[in-house]
């Protein structure tokens, strides 16, 4: 025992505290990464299980049949959306489009400049993908840098002179950067940012989103549990499109995915 202690003391003396600190940090980074990867892998199993068909999907191993099933699922979901009275969101990663649907009619079409999706979504079983496409999801929470309804309150003027001075500023929120993310009822998250050449002034919100994931992972590590993994899709749109999509959607909008 004393030998080990002496070895440890020698080690500390030799490599100094700073190296131990670095080693501990590196160990933490590795543990954090491993836990994150494990959580992601667990999520794949959970989603595959959640979206498993009761009756096995026949012929799904053939690319032609798989595509037919996917397209069929997508059209089926769009038919479901047509029943809603409000605007719904379609994220079409195959054709790189974000669409707004109102009673079965595409009222707005925005070209996706760029998108990234979690590896988890790319690693799902075909059966799960088909079933995800067939089932509309609902937004349960929205976080954004721009306001949904740019309301302004004006108190009625007493006379015509006051009325003439009562000039309300135009929609100054147009100038704000657009970044928002939708938390969906199935645990997915869709983030939309305006094109990056317009600047990165939405950084604080992105940082908040990342800190939330970090806290969740640390909480999991502290309790020796795998943290909850949120599969996400990050989409870059033109500034005007990003604003239009956000403002057109109601708070609990319905979303379908094509991937």
């Amino acid at each position: 025992m004393t030998k080990i202690l002496r070895l440890l003391i020698n080690f500390v003396k030799k490599f100094k505290v700073i190296f131990i600190f670095i080693a501990v940090c590196l160990l933490f980074l590795v543990a954090y990464t491993v836990v994150s990867v494990m959580a992601a892998k667990k999520q794949i199993t959970i989603i595959n299980e959640k979206y498993k068909s009761e009756i096995a999907m026949e012929g799904i191993e053939y690319p032609k049949i798989l595509n037919l099933r996917k397209e069929s699922a997508f059209i089926q979901a769009r038919l479901e959306l047509a029943k809603y009275d409000s605007v719904t969101l379609i994220v079409d990663l195959v054709d790189s489009l974000v669409l707004l649907d109102l009673k079965g009619v595409i009222v707005h079409q925005a070209k996706i400049i760029d998108f990234t999706k979690s590896e988890v979504l790319a690693s799902l079983s075909n059966e799960a993908v088909v079933n995800i496409m067939a089932s509309p999801m609902h937004i349960i929470n929205q976080t954004s840098t721009i306001v949904k309804v740019p309301k302004k309150i004006v108190i009625a003027p007493k006379d015509t002179i006051e009325a003439a001075n009562n000039v309300v500023a135009r929609d100054t929120l147009d100038l704000n950067p657009s970044f928002y993310y939708f938390e969906l009822d199935n645990g997915f998250e869709i983030s939309i940012i305006h094109e990056q050449k317009e600047g990165y002034s939405y950084f604080p919100l992105i940082l908040n989103q990342k800190i939330k994931v970090f806290k969740e992972t640390i909480r999991g590590m502290r309790h020796f549990k795998l943290p909850e993994y949120i599969p996400g899709i990050k989409i870059e749109l033109k500034k005007a499109d990003a604003k239009t999509v956000f403002r057109a959607l109601p708070h609990q909008a319905t979303v379908i995915l094509r991937m």
Binding site: L29, V37, S125
Partner: peptide
């Protein structure tokens, strides 16, 4: 920087490397 931003990329690589694709296709 790693914990907040880069870990996502590493995570994706990790998932890709450790997940065997269950989707077998009849080519």
């Amino acid at each position: 920087v790693y914990l907040l931003f880069w870990v996502d990329g590493v995570k994706d690589v990790g998932v890709r490397m450790t997940t065997s694709n269950h989707n077998t296709f009849n080519i």
